[in-house]
Design a protein around this nucleic acid. Structure first.
Length: 232
DNA sequence: TACCAGGTCCTCG
DNA sequence: CGAGGACATGGT
């Protein structure tokens, strides 16, 4: 599997993805295509776009993104998209706000623990993490309850702009379908990282394209089932 | 109506 | 270790 060539095909087929999608008021869907260095324009006392990305990464665990957008929207209107503001919410209130994203008790706890950690260890500013080496940050993130490898790597790649390749279920399926199966998460990750130039922009776009492709494949196979049933 | 969605943690053998 | 289950909502 020629990893860079596959990228070019995906890019041609699905177009620019522009992850990570931020929530933007007055739009029904999340907004895509904001360059990383422009994220700071979206900072307000009630909203930290970098923190918002981490929140989205936690909320989207085994959950359709559409449901996550609803939850982030309510957090946005509650002016709770910073660690301090989120911690100011009563835990039950937080549960209510993120309910549409599913697993709302678990995820409310995850968000609180993560925010408490930022508050206590990093002055409530997720960007303070950047002064550490990438793999030291990764190790620290993985110590948080509720943050596993995919979530940690999503935070590193999209909130902190660090060149680490995010592996999800779509990525595994994509590889398996092409005869590239591994056992460990990190084996998939290293497979991509070692085959590509070490660029966060490239990794961001590649992962987004794999998700776009995976969703599209799921749609296709569903339609085929319908066709078979209708035809037979 | 089941099954799925950009996982993670816990328990048990 | 590794399999199996719990966690929860909304779309199809």
């Amino acid at each position: 599997m020629q990893v860079m060539r596959v990228y070019n095909e995906l890019r041609r087929r699905y177009g620019q993805q522009g992850w990570w999608p931020l929530y933007v008021r007055n739009t029904k869907d999340a907004n895509y295509g904001i360059p990383y260095k422009d994220l700071k324009k979206y900072r307000t006392p009630f909203r930290d776009p970098y923190f918002e990305i981490a929140v989205g990464a936690i909320l989207t665990q085994n959950t359709a993104w559409k449901n996550v957008v609803r939850a982030i929207e309510t957090l946005y209107h509650a002016k709770a998209l910073t660690p301090k503001r989120l911690l100011a919410l009563h835990p039950r209130r937080l549960q209510t706000l993120i309910r549409p994203a599913g697993y709302f008790r678990q995820k409310a706890k995850k968000l609180r623990l993560f925010s408490e950690w930022l508050a206590e260890e990093h002055k409530s500013d997720i960007l303070r993490l950047k002064k550490y080496k990438m793999h030291d940050i990764r190790y620290q993130l993985l110590q948080r309850w509720g943050i596993g490898k995919e979530t940690a790597d999503s935070i590193l790649l999209y909130a902190l702009n660090k060149p680490i390749f995010v592996v999800d279920e779509y990525t595994r399926r994509f590889c398996r379908a092409r005869g590239k199966a591994f056992r460990e998460y990190d084996d998939y990750r290293l497979f991509f990282e070692s085959a590509l130039p070490r660029s966060s922009k490239l990794f961001q776009e590649y992962h987004a394209l794999l998700v776009a492709c995976g969703k599209n494949q799921a749609k296709i196979s569903k339609n085929q089932l319908v066709d078979i049933r209708d035809g037979g």
